[in-house]
């Protein structure tokens, strides 16, 4: 039986070492570039001839934009208008990356903690930046809410700090684990198809069902990742405790 974890192995396509830092171009980097190219090209193609009465392609692109705008409106309200392009990019990058990972011979970069973790860390830094920009030094009140006696500080400050640091962690783990588990399941069932001979159709049907379910999971996880990023952002910029 093949190792089901082999599909997550990072392979160096163009090795490049700068001092102690490995800057090699890997299969993960290639998949990210393919993902970005697919998004940009399909959006350019869909919006090639923008019209008041939209074509199918334009309507599809606009419906994704509307969906993101609605999501931001619900969580961030009027303040969220300036984050639409960022959240749109985040959603399409994760959703298309997840979906391309389901294709044979491709690579799911969203199953790697390093890749998703970097995105989540960027979201955290953005939260802190906009939190400070909107609320000034009042942002640090998040770590020690107003009205609490000062002797509670040694207890509350670490708890709030851990709570803040846990946000990118939970975002990362949720997406990476969901993607990895789905792909491992597909691979394991796939090996049973040949091994079971005539009865191989049983795992084949199961595999087909799982692929359908995975398609749903790819979009659901992208939605959850982006909507929670919006929720965290709204918590950072709002003055409510």
């Amino acid at each position: 039986m093949e190792n089901p974890l082999e599909q997550f192995e990072i392979k160096k396509l163009f090795p490049w070492q700068v001092g102690n830092v490995d800057l090699s171009f890997t299969n993960s980097s290639l998949c990210m570039i393919v993902t970005v190219s697919v998004i940009v090209l399909s959006l350019l193609l869909a919006l090639r001839k923008s019209a008041i009465v939209p074509t199918k392609g334009q309507a599809f692109a606009e419906s994704i934009y509307d969906f993101i705008q609605g999501m931001i409106g619900e969580t961030l309200g009027h303040e969220g208008v300036k984050f639409v392009s960022f959240i749109f990019t985040l959603f399409t990058f994760i959703a298309v990356g997840n979906m391309l990972g389901l294709l044979p011979y491709s690579f799911t970069f969203t199953s790697h903690i390093a890749a998703v973790g970097t995105l989540s860390l960027f979201c955290l830094l953005l939260n802190i930046y906009f939190g400070i920009k909107h609320r000034g030094l009042g942002y640090f009140r998040t770590f020690f809410p107003e009205g609490l006696p000062i002797f509670m500080a040694p207890l509350i400050v670490p708890v709030e700090t851990l709570s803040l640091l846990a946000k990118p962690f939970s975002l990362t783990i949720r997406l990476a684990v969901n993607m990895s588990v789905g792909h491992i399941m597909l691979e394991v069932l796939g090996t049973f198809i040949m091994a079971m001979g005539l009865f191989g159709f049983i795992p084949l049907v199961a595999d087909m069902c799982i692929i359908m379910f995975e398609l749903f999971v790819t979009l659901l996880q992208a939605y959850i990742y982006t909507t929670l990023s919006c929720v965290y952002l709204s918590q950072a910029i709002s003055d409510e405790e």
Binding site: L162, S163, L165, A166, K167, F169, S170, I173, R174
Partner: peptide, 10 residues
């Protein structure tokens, strides 16, 4: 996830 994550981070 929000319950478990801070414990892991801690």
């Amino acid at each position: 996830a929000e319950f478990v994550a801070p414990i892991f981070v801690g």
